[in-house]
Amino acid sequence: MAEAIAFYTLAVLILGLGVAVITTPKTVHSVVFLVLNFLCVAVLYVVLRAEFLAVIQVLVYAGGIVVLYLFVVMLVNLKRAPEAHEDPRRLARLGLALSGAVLLELAGIVVYSYGRVTPASAPAAAGPLTGAGNTEELGWLLYTDYLIPFEVASVLLLVAMVGAIVLARRES
């Protein structure tokens, strides 16, 4: 019961803040809403007993990445409106296609998860979380079953970093 209340309150907050992010006229304000949004998501993780994920969400997204966002938004002059594309309906069509794709994906996830949980109908399906803390388990999983995706992701980030440095370097 308490969990359901928490979930729906958070869901409303997250969606509301999400709407606020894209509707606020001032860019700095929308970044602030984005931070609040991330914090609410972190609380959602806590409700799901994924404390480690929650803390990492705050640390990496709210405390790190969005700070850099804010940095850019504050410094770049955003007063000039973006130049309109020749075809005014291009954006609308693109948006429609993208939101359709997301909707399909969400529907797919819902159908798939229903199909998976119903036959098993056991709470142990997802693997029980021991009291010792999920940090260790997460670590084990990352370095055993998911080692290759983990390493691939690291290399990807490294490539992005090198790329950024190459782009930002001044010709000397």
């Binding site: 931070v35 803390v55 990492i56 705050v58 640390l59 709210a62 405390g63 700070v67 804010l70």
Partner: peptide
């Protein structure tokens, strides 16, 4: 993580 929010 919480102290990292303080920078805002």
């Amino acid at each position: 993580s919480v102290t990292s929010i303080g920078v805002y």
